[in-house]
């Protein structure tokens, strides 16, 4: 996650506290895992504003059924379905599971 984006996430989390949920739209497993880790346990590259800052925010991917079920079907079709078909959904969600597992193990 870029430094500017990390700063933005930190600002929103600071301003709104515990009500913040992070929704990812990442295109592959690696970026999903990295971004999830960044907003939960802190910046793994120790380069950005979230270095050593474990925000512990709940994190979801837009392809997860829990998210899809909250969205009107026509909106999902227009906004997400095409990308879901073109990307490796299973690998992305596996990356997210891995990040959650790692976060649970260290907390």
């Amino acid at each position: 996650m870029g430094l500017e984006d990390q700063a933005a996430v930190k600002r929103v989390a600071d301003e709104h506290g515990s009500g913040v949920v992070v929704l990812l739209g990442t295109p592959d497993a690696e970026s999903t895992q990295t971004l999830a880790q960044t907003v939960v346990a802190g910046d793994p590259s120790y380069a950005g504003p979230l270095a050593g800052v474990p925000l512990g925010l709940p994190v979801f991917h837009v392809f997860e059924p829990e998210v899809r079920d909250q969205v009107p079907i026509d909106v999902y079709e227009a906004q997400v379905a095409l990308m879901e078909m073109s990307l490796d959904r299973d690998a992305i969600l596996a990356g997210l599971r891995e990040a959650r597992r790692a976060a649970a193990a260290t907390s």
Partner: peptide, 26 residues
């Protein structure tokens, strides 16, 4: 740099459009 394979992602999206339009199968 973690920015992915831009052309491949875009070609896959285009192919998915062809699926939506029932020109090819998934």
């Amino acid at each position: 740099a973690g920015s992915g394979n831009v052309p491949l992602n875009n070609y896959r999206t285009l192919a998915s459009l062809a699926v939506v339009e029932k020109l090819i199968t998934r």
